[in-house]
């Protein structure tokens, strides 16, 4: 799950770096792939948001009057979602580590 979250965050950071105006069509495709990975990892809300973002990004390429406010909204919601999930995952990973240590696993 952690890897999935990192990848989503990296994809969003790449989008922020490249900008919507120059985002390659591959960006929407990448988001769709990540949506599938999220779904498989049990991150259903993340998958839905990624799907929505990918659709908005694809639709933008064909729009004459571009209104990017909803797209930015979705991107920011997704970034916030990733942040909260990462916090939760971190807590879980510490607990997991402690459990492993108690059962004699590796440190």
């Amino acid at each position: 799950m952690n890897e999935c979250l990192n990848e989503v965050e990296q994809a969003l950071a790449d989008l922020l770096r490249s900008g919507l105006n120059t985002a390659a069509p591959a960006a929407a495709e990448r988001l769709r792939d990540l949506a599938g990975q999220c779904e498989a990892a049990g991150l259903h809300t993340g998958a839905a948001l990624l799907g929505e973002l990918a659709a908005q990004l694809a639709a933008r390429a064909h729009a004459l009057d571009k209104d990017d406010l909803p797209l930015t909204e979705t991107l920011c919601r997704l970034a916030r979602y990733c942040e909260l999930c990462a916090e939760k995952e971190q807590e879980e990973s510490i607990l997991r580590r402690w459990r492993e240590q108690q059962t004699g696993g590796a440190v």
Binding site: E9, Q10, L12, C76, A79
Partner: peptide, 17 residues
């Protein structure tokens, strides 16, 4: 860090929204 910029960008946008 790219990730930190994204988080701060999202927080400001989210709060304003």
């Amino acid at each position: 860090r790219d990730g930190e910029l994204l988080r701060r960008f999202a927080r400001a946008f989210h709060l304003a929204g």
